[in-house]
Computed example of a mutant assay.
Amino acid sequence: MIMLTGLQKIYHGGTGAVKAIDNVSLEIEQGEIFGIIGKSGAGKSTLIRCINLLERPTAGRVLVDGQDMTSLSEVELREARKSMGMIFQHFNLLSSRTVLGNVAFPLEIAGISRTEREKKAVPLLELVGLTDKKDVYPAQLSGGQKQRVGIARALASQPKVLLCDEATSALDPQTTESILALLKDINIKLGLTIVLITHEMHVIKAICDKVAVIEGGQLVETGKVFDVFTNPQSATAQDFIKAVVNNKVPDTLAALLSDAPVAGGNLVMRLSFFGDATNEPVIAGLIRRFAVDVNIISGNIDHLQDTPYGTLLIELSGKDEDIQNALIYLQDLDLRTEVIGYVARHAHAAG
């Protein structure tokens, strides 16, 4: 559906050239909810605006549904943009128009009659749950309701793609959850391809199928959300995931850890469970099979879409041979193991 190839965007200013986007290539398939995450200034807003050519790339190609957007004339580009709706962080509603008038505005610009505009706009208000608000003005709406109007307006031209530029950043957590649920519902009902940029990992975790991580204008990681979330390869992705998963080693323990085995010491490791493995009695089996004690330092179980995902941070104590056998046992199971380090026996408790 969307293919970016060698995309580059350079801004020229008083301090010289700045590469906002640096040789980015990625592919977004039909019907996906594709998230693009990055910190402030990473280039993600520029990237999404290059898709509909609100920002014209300095180099590279943008193909949408097989059409090369970068080769179109201004007239052709205006027509092509009708297949791409866009919603923004700050809603951008017309204060002098009612909710119905805002949703119908793109149709008015397109020269569609008033009767036909209303016929198209009213079902969209029903879709976003605002039928009872059609005659009120934006000033009378909450932030979440304003964003619902923005979504309905973006859908008025029956687009194939919906671009979301930090669509939930101005909303409180509960309202954010309802807007994300609405976007997921629209994706399913309309088969719409959604591209969503954000700086919040919980937004990606909630509804996205795939994610691209951008840093300094460059793509540093991309893949299925489950794969990136459970096994992040880039430091940037790891930082984002730490914000939503509490699997950090406590500072008091981290200060005592050694990378090399400590004679007569304990092994500290992180276990990650996926899917059915979250229901397995791993710790009970470990204790039954080996003469080791297990101290659970921290743990949690969460869900990525419909798949359960859990982590445990544990400390194994016992004879060196028993600890190594227990480690081999864990590594052979259907879970991910990570040795964090070694600590002298009783040192953690003493600290």
Rank of each mutant, 00 (worst) to 15 (best):
T168W: 03
E55C: 05
V99C: 09
T193S: 10
D209N: 10
S95A: 06
A243I: 07
D65W: 06
Y137G: 14
D209A: 00
T337L: 02
D227K: 09
R153I: 04
I2P: 06
H12E: 15
A206E: 15
V122K: 10
E116A: 15
L93G: 14
F91D: 02
E215L: 03
L100N: 07
L7A: 14
L141Q: 06
I2E: 08
G275P: 14
A291P: 12
D251P: 00
C164N: 14
P261N: 05
N325M: 11
F229Y: 11
K189I: 03
E118F: 00
L313R: 12
D239Q: 11
D135V: 00
M1N: 02
H202R: 03
S258K: 08
V103R: 01
G129F: 06
E27L: 06
L53I: 03
N23K: 13
I28R: 03
P123C: 01
L286V: 00
H12T: 15
G217Y: 05
F229Q: 02
N231V: 03
K9V: 09
G35W: 07
L125R: 00
E280H: 05
F226G: 04
L257F: 07
P281H: 06
G14D: 12
A350V: 11
D332A: 14
D322G: 09
V294E: 07
T222F: 09
K119E: 07
L267M: 12
D276N: 14
I204F: 12
E126C: 02
L313N: 12
A212S: 13
R78W: 08
L93P: 13
D302Y: 04
L47N: 05
G299V: 08
V213N: 07
V292E: 01
V24C: 02
C208A: 15
R78P: 13
S298M: 07
P281G: 10
S45Q: 08
D209R: 00
N300K: 12
I323A: 09
E177R: 11
A344E: 10
G318H: 01
L192N: 05
S142Y: 01
V249D: 13
Q218A: 14
A167E: 14
Q233G: 15
G6L: 08
A326Y: 04
T278V: 15
L47D: 12
T252D: 05
L316D: 15
Q331F: 07
L171I: 10
S83Q: 13
S317H: 10
V149Q: 07
F88H: 12
V195T: 06
A80N: 12
N279P: 00
S178M: 05
K205L: 06
A152P: 10
R270F: 02
R49M: 03
A255G: 10
A156M: 12
M269W: 02
N247H: 08
K9R: 07
L253R: 11
N187M: 03
D322I: 09
A152H: 00
C208Y: 15
S96F: 08
P138E: 04
E215W: 01
I51T: 01
S95E: 13
G223L: 12
T176K: 04
T131V: 03
L163E: 10
F226N: 10
Q305R: 11
V268L: 13
P173G: 01
G38A: 07
G144R: 05
A255C: 03
L312V: 04
H348L: 09
E200H: 06
A152S: 07
